[in-house]
């Protein structure tokens, strides 16, 4: 019996990381906020390092609600966009090595988003993860949670509906 042949791990990682980078680097606002994405397999964790620019309340030194809302929305869109892209690169429908920010697949568009503020955001790094609860041909529903020091004590959560990109 011949053992199964697998692609070298570095080749697999490079393909996935390139696709993710193309998705993230194409969006100027993500760079403006300093958000980056850590990938473990298909799971993404968004990281928004603390910066004084993100402060809303100078007395409390709390993150601006708008910064938190932006972080959640960015995480939801990239999380959903990545779940679509993942299937396409793993199936070979899209050649990950050829993807650049200029020709990357279109991102989903926000229809609505409801942000729920649970605790004041401290002047620390923030993390967020999105969960795609439903992804259809036209619409998707995504839930996203953000936390800082303690995963079990989220600072905010959001649910949003998104229009899926049409195949162009």
């Amino acid at each position: 019996m011949t053992p199964p042949t697998h692609e070298p791990v570095q080749v697999v990682k490079e393909r996935r990381d390139r696709a993710l980078n193309a998705l993230v680097e194409g969006v100027p606002y993500i760079g403006f906020l300093g958000i980056r994405f850590d990938r473990k397999g298909d799971e993404l964790t968004a990281v928004m390092p603390f910066s004084p620019m993100l402060i809303g309340n100078p007395m409390l030194q709390a993150l601006h609600g708008g910064a938190t809302a932006s972080f959640l929305e960015v995480t939801a869109i990239i999380g959903l966009g990545w779940s679509i892209l993942w299937e396409n690169i793993e199936s070979g429908a899209i050649d990950a090595i050829a993807i650049t920010p200029q020709n990357m697949p279109r991102l989903p568009k926000t229809i609505d988003i409801t942000v729920d503020y649970l605790r004041a955001g401290l002047p620390r790094d923030s993390y967020a993860r999105a969960r795609v609860n439903r992804s259809g041909r036209r619409y998707a529903s995504v839930h996203v949670e953000a936390w800082q020091d303690n995963r079990a004590r989220p600072i905010a959560q959001a649910t949003g509906h998104f229009l899926m990109p049409s195949g162009d």
């Binding site: 601006h64 609600g65 708008g66 809302a69 932006s70 929305e73 960015v74 942000v115």
Partner: peptide, 11 residues
């Protein structure tokens, strides 16, 4: 980006 519009709305 929608997030920037959200920030404006929140403020």
């Amino acid at each position: 980006h929608g997030g920037a519009v959200s920030a404006l709305m929140d403020t």
